[in-house]
Design a protein around this nucleic acid. Structure first.
Lengths: 342, 342
DNA sequence: TTGAAAGCGCTAACAA
DNA sequence: TTGTTAGCGCTTTCAA
């Protein structure tokens, strides 16, 4: 581990460390080509790797980015956010410090201090699912919020456009000819912000299609396959004239439960009932039979956006500081025309 | 961002920077309590956070750990590995640099250089799934391999004990009374090492139970729900006297497919057929109906182990340098006694 | 075109 | 018990 220093390269090349530094940083404007070549060769020969800690101390730029999250990395859910952040960071020569805090404020505070102490050039504060958070104290200005919004504003943020996603999902059903469309929402005392936004999108599409919303078709259940199964079961047990022919579920897990509820009643998807999910969750949406049409959460794109803004290579939004990332529809095979009998 | 330095604290407390350093690093043996208190107060008052980059340069220890992986972070699969690594790192005051390389050797090499340049104190090289890898050049000695083994040895490594996991799975079936037990393996030209190891465990249990292995019960399929469904379908279509009553699937996804195959034939799990999976994958195993009995991959524990060995707070294994982490059985409701008719 | 020297913020000998 | 000083490895004026 006896690291080779810039002075070793200088000695090997018979020049000063200043010259080596200039050459290795491609500031060769006023260095003779011969010297430059000699330096590069010497560097390679002695196996030199610059000490970026020393460089960071001197230049006050560490080329590191701190990414604090509640549980982004340790959950199967939002890893693509990390991928987007990593890719963007790498493209700009940055390394990322990742720290998961389990949403523990104590841990969070320590993490922020540690990252600030490490002189990170940029910071991202990420949540596992779209929500409004209290910005922890000590966050450097310019910190970007990823998949969450600071309740008090003041920071650039990016979240999925859940309203638009709801619109996309329900339009898919309307376009297939459905008129009786249910929204299977989450049943929680403090529902996630996505819940209301997707519902809003749902109502918008009904309005634009001239459909009067039926409160009976706004179902609720636990956020799980079992919860979706129960809620959708109640919907499918409605008399035929009131029963929905298209169902938009809050997420893919609940949609998976919807399949079960349908199958138990001898109904086929999409022949007897069409289903649209949300999240495009790996190993869930695509593995249903038939594969589930759903709305994708743009995790990768959000991770990229947040990183680019944090690194200053992309302008943050002007007026309102939170950016809404579109949620694209992913067409698979769970949507068809409504049954003719209905 | 005009950071406050140790000299600011020194000025505020009316002492030298050396004294501040001593106090803040709890080397107060020979510092008067009054001075120590004054320093701490001054540090708090001016809002001092030590510059760990400068400290690292001086002490030659950065308290950072580099974690290189193919796609560990960006896959829903092995995030728990990261959680284990993070927890262990935090406990010892380390911050982790995470870099995903997508298994691209070019990216991998750059990542190693970058991490070495950052003077990381420890390094972990992780894979997303248990396999044997070519150790990339430039890895510092002491690098720990996580969920993979270097083909040439020479580094401590930790992988799941897939043979033992296979034993646990099949014993579960034998204990329930099954005698005709199938193993649904992966059909790939270069099967993952786990495939053979789990099969080995399967054969061991059959032997210890005095059951002659039936080659017809060693099925193969694609590693997906669809593949599991197809392979298990063929098994269930066997004449009743040759049909398995217990099925051990290579992973949970294939096991999910096994449920589908059974249901399509009007069979109930576990009344007509018992199923055991592998991986204990979130949002898959627990969400089956009935919940799937499976074998858990000890991702969290492996992440922790690797980090502790990398940080030198745990002894690496002596003789053979790769540590086998036990895979515990997770009992849910997909195993019951064989149907009496069989 | 190149080199000498200072200094980033900290810790650790050594001196007082 | 505390302060002075050197130096970690690098970049960057400034001088030659």
């Amino acid at each position: 581990m006896a690291r080779v220093r810039i002075s070793d390269v200088a000695t090997a090349a018979g020049v000063s460390t200043a010259t080596v530094s200039l050459v290795l940083n491609d500031r060769v404007e006023r260095i003779s080509p011969a010297t430059a070549a000699r330096v590069r060769q010497a560097a390679a020969a002695v196996g030199y790797t610059p000490n970026t800690v020393a460089r960071g101390l001197r230049t006050q730029r560490t080329h590191t980015l701190g990414l604090i999250s509640d549980t982004i990395a340790t959950t199967p859910f939002a890893g693509r956010m990390l991928a987007g952040a990593q890719d963007a960071a790498r493209e700009h020569g940055y390394l990322v410090f990742l720290v998961d805090t389990d949403a523990d404020p104590k841990v969070e505070e320590k993490a922020i201090r540690a990252l600030v102490g490490q002189q990170v050039d940029a910071m991202i504060y990420a949540a596992m699912w779209h929500r409004v958070v209290e910005a922890p104290a000590g966050l450097p200005t310019g910190t970007v919020f990823l998949d969450c919004r600071p309740s008090g504003g003041g920071f650039p943020a990016v979240v999925p456009d859940d309203r638009q996603g709801g619109v996309a999902a329900v339009r898919e059903l309307v376009a297939a000819g459905h008129r009786r469309i249910a929204y299977v929402d989450v049943a929680e005392d403090e529902p996630p912000v996505a819940s209301g936004l997707r519902h809003q999108g749902y109502l918008e599409v009904l309005a634009e299609a001239g459909i009067t919303p039926d409160p009976a078709l706004h179902a609720r259940g636990e956020t799980s396959a079992a919860g979706g199964c129960a809620a959708v079961g109640r919907l499918l047990d409605l008399p035929a004239d009131r029963r929905p022919t298209g169902i938009f579920c809050f997420n893919d897990r609940m949609a998976a439960g919807a399949y079960v509820a349908a199958h138990r009643r001898g109904m086929d998807v999409p022949r007897d009932v069409s289903i649209v999910g949300y999240d495009d969750q790996q190993l869930v949406a695509g593995e249903q039979d038939p594969p589930l049409t759903t709305v994708a959460l743009p995790h990768y794109e959000m991770g990229r956006w947040a990183t680019e803004v944090a690194l200053g290579v992309r302008e943050p939004p002007r007026e309102d500081s939170t950016h809404l990332m579109p949620c694209p529809i992913v067409r698979r095979d769970s949507v068809g025309p409504p049954p003719t009998a209905a």
